[in-house]
Computed example of a mutant assay.
Amino acid sequence: MKSLSLNPYLKLDQSNEKASSNDSESEKFLQRQLHLMFPYVPEMEKISTQLPLRQELPSLWDEIEGEMASRGAKFNTLCPIRAEMHRMLFDELIRQIVVILPQQGELLWRVRKESEQTVDTWKELCAGGQNYGNRVYTKIDPNAHTHFTQESTPPTPQPI
């Protein structure tokens, strides 16, 4: 299941075959859809179109819990490690839905993109509000520490 792609939980086709002319049109359509949704997977690799197996779930769960523990993910606060792991798992869930029903998979992909944009917007608003609060605090208390007086643009959010 593991590969050299950026998302180790996104299931790739392990047969070392490239897309051939005898692939069915539905297989080619699925591959195009999946590569549009997951552009970080190289075009040379085929994303698996196998249906998910219920027997894989317990081992995947144990693997994820172990990975979160080894990377030091926090469960009670906002944690970029945990958010990244959830994003990777959501990618695999989208892949599974696309294999079963491509239109619903595309809808789920769009929902994920919209939620990522919403979270990024809230991060920028919070950073801007914090900068504004720091400027107001500096005007009220001129003896405030110098690190409060730095007027800077809000930091750009890091991808999760």
Rank of each mutant, 00 (worst) to 15 (best):
E84R: 15
R82K: 12
M88H: 09
N76H: 14
M88L: 06
R95T: 00
S70Y: 00
I97A: 06
T77I: 14
V98W: 02
M88I: 00
V98A: 09
M85S: 11
R87L: 10
I97H: 07
R87N: 13
I94F: 06
I97G: 01
E84F: 05
M85W: 00
D91H: 13
E67K: 15
M68P: 00
V99N: 08
F90A: 14
K74T: 01
N76W: 03
R95G: 03
D91C: 11
C79P: 06
I94D: 06
D91M: 02
A73F: 08
M85V: 11
E67H: 14
L89R: 09
N76G: 13
A69R: 11
G72P: 04
I94W: 04
A73T: 09
V98E: 05
A69P: 00
P80Y: 11
L89P: 05
A83F: 03
R71I: 00
A69T: 10
R87S: 09
T77R: 10
L78W: 07
S70L: 13
K74G: 08
E67T: 10
F75P: 00
P80L: 03
V98H: 06
L93W: 02
N76M: 13
I97D: 01
F90V: 02
F75Y: 02
A83M: 15
E84S: 15
C79D: 15
M68C: 10
G72S: 05
L78I: 07
L93P: 02
F90L: 14
R87E: 13
I81W: 03
L89A: 07
T77E: 15
G72T: 08
A69E: 15
S70T: 08
I97T: 10
A73M: 12
M68K: 05
Q96V: 02
A83G: 13
H86F: 06
L93D: 09
R95W: 01
C79A: 09
K74V: 05
Q96Y: 02
M85Q: 14
A69L: 11
C79G: 08
Q96N: 12
I81Q: 13
F75W: 00
